[in-house]
Simulated scan of single mutants.
Amino acid sequence: MAQIPLSDLQPGQVLARGTARALSALGLDCIAEMPLRPRLRADLMAIDRKGEIWIVECKSSRADFTSDRKWDGYLDWCDRYFWAVDQEFPTDLLPEGTGLFIADGYGAEMIREAPLSKLAPARRKALTLDFARAAARRLHRLCDPGAGQIGL
Rank of each mutant, 00 (worst) to 15 (best):
L75H: 13
C58D: 02
A32K: 09
L129T: 11
L9M: 15
A122N: 03
R112I: 11
S24H: 13
A132C: 08
G12C: 06
A135C: 11
E52P: 01
L36I: 14
G51H: 02
A114D: 03
L6R: 01
W71C: 02
R137C: 10
R39D: 11
L26D: 14
A42Y: 03
K59F: 03
D104E: 02
D68V: 02
R124C: 04
D68I: 01
E88G: 10
F131H: 07
R112F: 05
G97W: 02
L100Q: 00
S7H: 07
E52A: 14
W71N: 00
D43A: 06
D64E: 09
T19V: 02
L36P: 15
V56R: 04
P95N: 08
K125W: 12
G51Y: 03
A84V: 03
D8V: 06
A135E: 10
R69Y: 01
R37P: 07
G146L: 13
A25M: 08
D144F: 12
G73A: 08
Y74F: 13
D76K: 13
L23K: 01
F101R: 00
W77Q: 08
C143V: 11
S7V: 06
K118R: 10
A114N: 05
E113R: 12
A108K: 02
A147F: 07
L139G: 08
L116F: 07
W54M: 01
A103Q: 02
Y74I: 00
K70L: 06
A135S: 11
R41W: 01
L100S: 01
D29N: 08
G18E: 01
S117V: 13
R17H: 06
R112Q: 13
A135I: 05
I111M: 11
L36K: 06
A132T: 10
I102H: 05
A135W: 14
R69F: 00
Q87K: 11
L75W: 14
K118M: 10
D104S: 04
P115R: 09
D144M: 09
T19R: 00
S7K: 14
T19H: 01
L116K: 10
A20N: 05
